[in-house]
Design a protein around this nucleic acid. Structure first.
Lengths: 130, 130
DNA sequence: TAACACCTTCGAGTAACACGAAGTCAATAC
DNA sequence: GTATTGACTTCGTGTTACTCGAAGGTGTTA
């Protein structure tokens, strides 16, 4: 069983965020100890992992809530859930491509600065101040 | 010369966001036509491209503003700007790794659902409802 | 001359936290 | 035995980066 602090470290989420998600009903069956402290078991961690991933795919907390509720409804919602996951998987793939381009862009930019700092004289196809 | 609508399409930003960035001073020297409409030239587009990338690296609008101002100050700030870019480049690389993991996670999830839908009976190392 | 598409400013609304106050509880420190 | 420490609680406000919509100015097409 994990405390808020422990899961937050484990999943690299802020404690605020962990509480926020649980309070919004994104994590089913979060237990409390006798002092009313949230207690997370392996299943909770599992849920939170999924939630974190869906969130980073770009899903809103509200949409994730809908998805979680569908999960709790049982087998009859499998197809509907699949559609959601499929969409988010595609979002993730698109993000991956974007991330690649962005990383390249930033590497170029950093190298550009290195060139300037090292006084490397370049040809004048240099695209400008940026 | 581009209108707000045109750059927003070109760079895949909302018109609101383009206006927001220009009004916050992130894009230097944005012209206006006789009807006071914003007009973006190639340089502006160049700036916006950089801004978009920095933003997606996780930089706040405020920090980007600081960076842009440093750019406008000239050569004396090159080293300082390099430090900023370096940090953001590393952020971009970290994001890239995260994006890879997330894409994998989502693909597994999607395949998991496909298995269920196709009634594939699996071994019981199945990790649960998720 | 009217409709349409585009632009403008401005002010309010929203999502997803982030933060801080005020308080509870249990374990250690002196 | 009290005091400090540290983790937790709830609640309510603040922040960022948009996002939306209203109200209105142009300029071209029908």
């Amino acid at each position: 069983m994990y405390t808020v602090k422990e899961v937050s470290k484990l999943l690299d989420l802020s404690e605020h965020t962990v509480r926020y998600y649980t309070d919004k009903g994104l994590v089913p069956n979060v237990q409390r100890d006798k002092n009313n402290n949230r207690l997370f078991d392996e299943k909770s961690v599992h849920w939170l992992t999924g939630i974190k991933n869906l969130k980073r795919c770009g899903m809103s907390v509200e949409s994730i809530k809908t998805y979680v509720d569908l999960c709790l409804e049982g087998d009859s919602t499998v197809r509907e859930r699949y559609e959601i996951i499929l969409e988010q998987k595609n979002a993730a793939l698109a993000q991956l491509e974007e991330a690649k381009l962005r990383a390249k862009f930033m590497e170029k930019k950093a190298n550009h600065y290195l060139d300037i700092i090292n006084q490397v004289v370049q040809d004048n196809t240099n695209p400008g101040k940026w």
